[in-house]
Design a protein around this nucleic acid. Structure first.
Lengths: 199, 199
DNA sequence: CCCTTGAATTGACCCTGGTCACTTTTTAAG
DNA sequence: CTTAAAAAGTGACCAGGGTCAATTCAAGGG
């Protein structure tokens, strides 16, 4: 069961493929991404693509996952939310990215809870990182503005569930007037706030 | 802008296509559904399929939506939940159906908040029906076991968000030991219950 | 009964993701 | 060096969804 380290050539080929895909996406958007174009630009045969990525969607998941990590790191670097309303605005950059495009949203959904345990799955990993960040934020505010009768972890998962709901609604023609974080906010109060009668 | 009524022949063809698809799905599952097989079984040309359904997924969405309506009607016919824990068990049949198969789950996700307003979209419609049912259930329990400080509609949407979260987790290898409604339950208490201090 | 018009259907064709038997390159042992 | 074996890469090929110009069919007017 030896797992040999990949040769330098392989790493270079992979980098060429990723770079080609990024260029095409930048130029034509996610919908315009064609495997044939990627391999043409990377000067590589089609079969090579599929020896590096199980399928087209895995490549997409990789690129999207990278960007999500970048955005989340940025969010984590900033100040934590000072109150419950802040949660939605802090999350906005990530939600905007995921909901920018139906293809992105679908890929994120498909790989967010993906079956692969041996997780090179960045998106799945990112979702766990989100939870950790939310839990930390929540813990810091518990006792002041956030309820203490529920575990921070469960509250964090709930925040994520609401965020997904808010993003899914973006693609519903009825609700597309609002920003995502504006659709998220109404849930967060009832979910996170300390009951008034306990104040 | 006249919209002519379809001829009898067209209705029959459509029925043949739907029946063929249902048979194939029953025999080989959703993953084994091939448009070519459907038209072969229905004794119809390929082009005809696409004059009846925009694409393969629309047909799937139709079949799945029908089944969801059937299941939801069944749930609505039964007794309403007597307490918060009951919510999860009442929802189980619907969640089991949606999460039975990754293809089904993906289609449901893609068409649940689908952009089409002129909604012949059964799945999208079904999601609205779910919300209405939940809201009615919630209203009936408000003041006894369910909190009154949040609109029933918002609470209902939250229940749906949690249900989706619970189903998405089914496809995560880490959590596949539990039933869906067991994963849903932990969220519902904190979301729906009256704050203890207000009792 | 014939003809016109639009609805319904047809199937050859295209597009694009994905496969796999085979060739080329790299590694390392002798 | 030589050479065997493993890694990397190739491109002809296939599968299966989706298109559309051409054809057949149904309904109503004369």
């Amino acid at each position: 069961m030896e797992t040999r380290a990949p040769q330098k050539r392989r790493l270079e080929t992979r980098a060429k493929l990723v770079a080609a895909a990024e260029t095409i996406i930048a130029e034509e958007g996610f919908a315009g991404l064609r495997v044939e174009d990627v391999v043409a630009r990377a000067k590589v045969a089609k079969g090579t693509f599929f020896s590096h990525f199980e399928d087209k969607d895995r490549l997409l998941a990789l690129l999207i996952g990278q960007e999500m990590e970048r955005i989340l790191a940025n969010i984590a670097d900033g100040p934590p939310p000072a109150d419950i309303d802040d949660f939605a605005t802090r999350l906005a950059p990530l939600m905007d990215y995921i909901a920018q495009d139906r293809i992105v949203f679908d890929v994120v959904m498909r790989f967010s809870g993906a079956g692969v345990i041996e997780t090179t799955e960045l998106i799945s990993l990112n979702f766990m990182h989100q939870i950790e960040l939310f839990a930390a934020w929540i813990q810091a505010l518990q006792g002041t503005v956030i309820r203490t009768d529920v575990e921070p972890m469960l509250l964090a998962e709930g925040v994520q569930a609401f965020a997904i709901q808010a993003m899914a609604l973006k693609f519903c023609a009825l609700h597309n007037t609002n920003q995502h974080h504006e659709r998220l906010a109404p849930y967060l109060g009832p979910w996170l706030a300390q009951p008034k009668s306990a104040q």
